[in-house]
Computed example of a mutant assay.
Amino acid sequence: MTAGSHDETLAVLTTACAAVGLDPSGAKPIRLAENALWRLPGGIVARITRAGQHQPTERELRLARWLSAQGLPVVRPLPGIEAPATAAGRPVTFWEELPPHTNGTIPDLATLIRQLHSLPRPDFPVGRLDPFVRIRDRIDAAVTLSDTDRDWLRDRLADIQSAWASLPEGLPECLVHGDAWTGNVACPLAGGPALLMDLERCSVGRPEWDLVSTAVKLTTTGTISKTEYERFCTIYGHDVLNWPGYDTMRAARELRMTTYAAQHAATNPAWRPEAQHRLACLQGHNGPRPWKWMGIV
């Protein structure tokens, strides 16, 4: 966190609160990243999105209300504020604060994704899944990498995009989360159903994309056991590892994870060794999968 990011987003928050009649006094930052989260008194969380994202943010609000009405446990927008406020070009949305919670478990995630995928499509536009959104921007921002390495990543992106265009048939398209991992599931400490969070990428697309996020934890990073993965498949009812398109989707997910680390390395030195390590893995310098990839907060 930098003072600039704190002060900048606090100014955005103050303006947005004034526009919707909320008092920002006593607001405290929860997370200051691409999307900034602030906690307001009274059980309210404000989410400040990147500039130019008004339409996707508005869609996320509408989807959250629709999903809740369908009976899916999700984060809930604050009642009475129908549209995002805008300050300094950045959309700001307001949500009901979650109770004390931990990240969800692999079974929690499988249950929620199965429920999500079984829903009908909404009767309003939700867009189509774009698994490559912002990857090129991340590569451009990865200034701690050499030009040669960034060119390699761009070529890798082009190759995977080409392979994606000819993916084999799989499960029927449906509403997908887009970033389905346990960090986007909240498990209340006092009990009750786990909740699905961060609906920014929710759209219509191939359900395998949501399943691959867990499968790579077995095959790429080795952060879950075979038993945990089998439990995930049993609950969901499908094993994406048996699908001929898995290698392509795995490659896309690995590229997202690598460029995420590389982008953060440009502003946070703690990420630099990890970014180089992930890149070296993709380039074939660190042996076969699974590789040990660290999560850095």
Rank of each mutant, 00 (worst) to 15 (best):
T182L: 10
S213P: 06
H177Q: 08
N184L: 06
G178F: 03
G205K: 00
L211W: 06
V176R: 05
L195H: 02
C187N: 13
T214C: 08
V204G: 01
V216R: 03
P172R: 13
V216L: 08
T219P: 08
P188T: 09
W181A: 14
L195Q: 03
R201L: 10
V176A: 12
V212W: 01
T221R: 11
K217H: 13
W209L: 06
V212A: 09
S203I: 01
T182R: 06
E200W: 08
E173H: 15
N184W: 05
R206Q: 07
A180Q: 08
C202H: 02
M197L: 15
E208Y: 12
V204A: 10
G205A: 05
L189G: 12
S213I: 05
H177L: 11
A194S: 15
C187Q: 14
P172A: 11
L218I: 14
T182C: 11
H177C: 11
V212T: 03
L195Y: 03
L199V: 14
T182A: 12
G205C: 09
L171I: 11
C202D: 03
W209K: 05
K217S: 11
L175W: 09
D179W: 12
V185S: 11
P207M: 09
P207W: 02
D198I: 15
V185F: 07
A180M: 08
L189V: 14
A190V: 08
W209Y: 14
S203W: 01
A180Y: 02
T220K: 03
A180E: 05
W181G: 12
S213G: 09
C174I: 13
G192T: 06
T219Q: 05
L175T: 07
A194D: 14
C202L: 08
L171Y: 12
G205R: 00
A215D: 01
V176G: 11
L195G: 01
T214R: 04
G192K: 10
G178W: 00
V204L: 13
V176Y: 14
L195N: 03
S213M: 09
N184M: 07
L199M: 13
L199K: 04
V216I: 13
P188M: 14
T219W: 06
L175Y: 05
A194E: 09
C174V: 15
R201C: 05
A186K: 04
G191H: 12
P172H: 13
G192I: 08
P193M: 02
V216C: 05
L196W: 00
A190L: 05
W181R: 15
C187F: 13
A186T: 11
P207K: 04
E200L: 07
T182N: 06
D198T: 13
V212Y: 06
T221V: 14
L171F: 11
W209G: 04
L195A: 04
G205N: 07
T221F: 13
T219H: 11
A215N: 08
E200F: 12
V212I: 15
L196G: 00
L196F: 04
V185G: 06
L171D: 10
L211C: 00
K217P: 01
E208H: 15
